[in-house]
Each structure stands twice: as C-alpha cells, then as structure tokens.
Write a protein that binds this DNA or RNA. Structure first.
Lengths: 191, 191, 191, 191
DNA sequence: GCGTAAACGAGACGGTACGTCCAGTCTTATA
DNA sequence: TATAAGACTGGACGTACCGTCTCGTTTACGC
C-alpha cells in the first residue's frame, strides 16, 4: 500500500527539537514563562511548525510529560511487595523534591500546566506523569492482601497525590513523618 | 495625636472598585484571562492605582479570596455534630460544583491562581478560602470522640482537599458515592 | 538570482499608511503632540510595525520630510535668472507662511523635530526639506555673475534660513520689507 | 503699610531650589528629558509648588535662562571697539562650544525649549539669553562708523544667530574660517 | 525525470497586555 | 495661605508574545 499523502513527511528532527526545547525551557523557567516564540527560537524552528502540530502550549507540555521528559525518573512508585513501605518511600521522595527550590518550581509548573489541560491533570493523578500508575500499585496491594478487597483504590490514589499537591501549593514543607502519618491514615489494613 | 502621614489617604472607593472588578472578571473569564488593564477599565481606575497597591495580579486575587468575594458562601463546612455526615455533605457540594461548567472553571482558576501565590494555596487548603477551617472541623471531631486522639488532622485535611483538586484537574467528575467512599476511607473511627 | 531574504516582504501599504498618518497628524497637531500610538491607530497598523522599521518618532518625520509630505510645494526656490528677486520672493513666501497661524506651527514643529534628528536639520538648511537646494541656487547666481566668485554660498544659505528660523522662534513677524533688507544685506554684488 | 496678602509668603528658598534643580537637570539631561516630577524631586519640593508658580516646563526654563543659569558667561559679546573682531571672536566661541558634545546638546536643548516658548526664542535672538544684546553691539558699530548708517541691524543679528542655529541643528561643525567668512559676508563697511 | 503538494525556515503583520513614566489635579496635615 | 507629601485619572512609552499570514526552499510521492 503506497503512502497516503504527497509532499514532504513530517520532520522527525523538528518534532524532537521542539519537544526537547520545550522540556529544557520548562525546567529552566517554568510553565508561566514558556512562550511559543521562545521554544521556536530555542529549537531552531519556525513558529508555524509548532502551530501546525500542536494547538496550544499546554498540549506541547502534555506531549513532553508523556515522553517522560519533564520528571526525574526516580519518582516512579517502587514495588518491593510491601505496599506501606513502597508508598512511604515514594511520598518521601516527593516531599524531598518539594524542598529543593527547583523541585517545588517544577511541581508548581506542572500544576499550572494541568490547569490548562486535563490530560496533564490525568497524568499527575496517575502518579505524576510517568509510566507507573499509583492505582495499579494499590490494586497490587489488594491482591497481596495488604488492603481490604473493597478499598476504594481510585479515591485513595487521588487523596495521596492530592495531599502532595496541596502541600506544594500552600508552601508547607512535607517531612518524612508526614509521609508515614498520611499513609497510615489512608491505608487501613484488612482485619 | 495627629495623623501619622501626609498626603491624600488611600481611596477606599478605588480599593473596593478594584476588588469588585477583579472578582467580577475572575468569575466571568477565569484567572488566565484576567488582565490588569481589564480590571482597571472595569473598575474605572488607572493602572497605576492598581500597581501602587498590589505587586501582582495574584496578590489582587488573594485579597479577593480573603474578602470572600470569589467563592459561594455555601461552601463552608457545616458543623451539625456528626463529623462524617458533615464532611460528606461538604464534599458532595464541592463535587456538585465541579459538575457545573462554571463551577469547574472557578476551581481551576483558583488552582491556577494558587500556582502563582502561596497565600492562595494556603486558603485553598484551609477549606477553600472561606472563614471556616477544615482542620478546625476535624479537631472538633476529635474532641467529640468521633476521631482517634492521634488522628493526623492536618494530613487528613490536605488529603480531602487534595482529592477534590485532583478530580478538578483531571476532569474526573466526583459523584456522591465517591464522597462517601473517600470520607469512609479517611475517617477511621476510634476503637 | 533568487531572492536575498526569506520571510514575507515588507508591506508597502503599511509603510505608506504610516507615513501618511504621520504627515496628517504632524500637520494637525504638531510634532510635540505626535505619538507613535496615535500614528499606529490613524494608520490602522500595529505599533510593532512602526518600531520594526523606524527607531524613533523623529526618523519617521524625517522620512515624511524626505518624501515631501510635510511642506507645501510652493516653498521651493524659484529660478527666474534674477537671483535677488528669486530670494526675495522665496523669503516673502516664507514670511507669509509664518504669519498664518498654522504656518508658524508647522515651522516650529519642524524645528522641534530637527532638534531630535540631524537629518531633519540638514533638510531644513537645504531650503526646508524639499528637492531644491538654496545653496545650489546661490551657486547658479555666482555663475551668472550676480554674486562674487568667492562668495561664501554655504554661509549665506545658512544665514538666510537661519534668519527665518530665528524669526519663527522669537515670534517676530517677518514683513516684505524685511525680506528685501535681509537679501540686500547679504548679497553684495560683484564690483 | 502692612502686607498686602494674608497667609504664608512665597518661599524664596523653594523658588531658588526649583530654578537650580531645573538648571542642573537641564544641563545634565537636556530639555527633552526634563520632567516636572524630576525637578520637584531634585529640588525637594512638591509638584504643586511648581505648578502654582509656573504654568509650564518651558516657562521654568525661560526663567532659568533669564537668570543666566543655563549659559556659560563667556558667551556674551565683547566690545573692544573693533566690531568685526568682536563678532568673529564671539562666533568662534560659539562654534567651539558646538564642537564639544555637551555644548551642542546644550544648544539643541535651548532650541527645543524655544520651540515651546517665544520668550526663550527672543532671548536666543538677543545673543543667546545673556544680558548683552547682539543688536545693541551692532548699533554701537554703526555709531562708531564701522557699519553703514542704514545697515539693517535687526536683520543682521537674526542672520548671525540663525546661521549658528542652523549649524547646530544640521550637525555641521562650524570652523574658525567660517566665522570669518560669515562676518565678512554680512558686514559691509561704509564706503 | 518532473510537476505538485506538503513541510519547513524566516519573518512581517494586527493585536493585546505588560509594567513604567510622567502630566496635571486633588486632598491631606503642617508651618 | 504656602508647602511637602502623596494618591488619583489618564495617556503614552517601548517590549514581549500571540496567532495568522506570506514568502522562498526543501523533500518525496505520483505521473
């Protein structure tokens, strides 16, 4: 079957350059100060090439997030078999990130981006945009008998991520003990 | 004792007009489309008068929020004596708000504003900017014996508000049953 | 040979609209009250388009002057063969212009513009911005034997124009007799 | 006879401070960049005090010029008895001033101010704002028999000052020889 | 190969808003 | 009543980006 379309195919190098430029500028200056013009200049690309493929700045960021270009990889949820320990470890890492100045900026920028794009919000909910899913980890915990069968995993996931987001937005630093308390409050073991 | 300062005193009418214009435009068009120029025009005031008293758009919004000009009054947490019922009722109202198109827009706008101003984030955490405090209500629950003495009220509050915020950001509608499940997951009654 | 530059070419219609708007507003309200914003509005053009091509208001006015859009065409120096008569006629026209209210305003505005831009000053010196040159006319007079060979034509030109400028600035009306006296004082015929 | 008016008399110290501040800022930054606000701050005076006594910026400058606060004193016309030598010396000094960067700026600023105020133009004409008068010096020359009785002294004065102004505006440097040529062209001795 | 059509760089364009400066007027309290 | 202080409306500044557009160039199919 021959090609569907005539004309030059989409330039992969331009696509990459744009996403990388976006990620770089996002990390450097935050979502608020991201501009299409700046991205085009940084990527060595014309504005039109961006507008041809992405309808809005937030969709660009969503693509970056999907490709894992925005978040440090350490933020994925571990699965050692011990749900409580895994969640605590994951939350502690998040709280630590929020205490680095750039870390908090990154999180705030992601929230700001989510404000403009539901997809980004969804990725945040499913454990911050990476491949792993918080809800999947909780479900594994149910299977392993570490959580009651009828535990509302979706709600628990939202509550965990949401607590972190609220901490980020209100500038209240999260400490290790908070992570423990939060997980213990949420995770009622089966009788 | 005579007055402390010379020069004309700050114009109360201008202050009010600015805050009201901000609230009006915020409700109409959202935080993203709020512009100082637009507020000045709506308030019949010069831009300089705004810049003289507020360093940034987000501080203006924070003042509005403090004065209760942005949120419907029904969103305060009730206190009927039954903590579980109160929390469920409050969450249901929030979820209902999120299902109205304007309601979700309002919440998203508040989160966007919080992104630029920690104070706003703090008000969101303390039950959405009003006078009432979610944490205070939880503490009342502890005193009434409806919650264990060592319940981490701060974390629970953050988790509740955060869950709602995550729902808002990810566009997942919250239903009444969700509210019940969430509250039941979080509120472990004393033995 | 292909085109030198990429990107859309400069819009001639915008260029013209800007110059015409400038000329119109200059004539109506004078150099002092000329504003880039006003010109942009009058020309139906964005401010950026003006700033892209002209670094300053005075350069815009200089371009208008060069294109002969600011001065009445009658102000060019005649060449009937009789130098003395030509100069007197030209000066009389200038003096008459200065006695019309708008005429004096025009001249004052030109001087104010020259204050910000040497090019404009140069055009004023070479007989007020038009195509004709006062010095060239004087040189013709030398050739015709109506002026001494070593007559300092440049200095005489500056003195003639300068006298008119001083009259304009000091509000002293120039009369016909003044023109005659001035020319006779400056133009010493050859022995 | 008691005072005519009630209330505090005009503050002489404020008046002086304002004029001195004006002169200082005029010299430093030129007429164009002079602002009432800046003068008030520099003088330690309120804006209202300036507006109470001077209707416009240009009137302030006119007053400074009258008080001799703007021009170097060396620019007065000498009177050694030799009219030609005096005029040449005076012009040479002017030309020299125009070749210093600040000197040209000063002259341009004065012309710009004259553009807004006829009085200033008049002072420029009467030999640049000082006490001495060019026309008076020329009249002395007539009395001394160095100029024809019917020499048009007013026109000659305007031509001399005007030539200098044109040089200043057009950025053409005046040299010593130019001064000689100009004076010789204008001053026809009696037969 | 050769035309044609899309992608692409460059960049001009009409706009909106920014945050700042200053004008000129006013309202206080003090001298 | 003059003054210092300073708040106020209003207009313009020069800049940054927006999203659209118009060029000339490049690339790859389909004839």
């Amino acid at each position: 079957m021959p090609n569907q379309r005539r004309g030059a195919p989409r330039s992969e190098s331009a696509r990459l350059a744009i996403l990388q430029a976006t990620a770089r500028l996002f990390a450097q200056r935050g979502y608020e100060h991201l501009s299409i013009e700046g991205i085009a200049a940084e990527a060595g690309v014309s504005k039109q090439t961006i507008y041809r493929w992405w309808p809005a700045k937030s969709d660009l960021v969503a693509d970056c997030l999907l490709d894992g270009m925005l978040l440090p990889s350490r933020l994925t949820i571990p699965d050692t078999g011990d749900l409580r320990a895994d969640l605590i470890a994951w939350l502690e890492q998040l709280f630590q990130l929020l205490q680095e100045p750039d870390g908090r900026g990154l999180m705030i920028s992601l929230i700001a981006a989510a404000t403009a794009n539901e997809q980004i919000g969804g990725r945040l909910r499913d454990s911050l945009g990476g491949e792993s899913s918080l809800v999947a980890r909780l479900a594994t915990g149910v299977e392993a008998g570490q959580l009651r069968d009828d535990a509302p995993v979706a709600e628990l996931g939202e509550a965990l991520v949401g607590a972190m987001i609220v901490k980020a937005l209100s500038g209240r630093p999260g400490e290790s003990a908070d992570a423990v308390r939060l997980v213990d409050a949420l995770l009622v073991p089966p009788d």
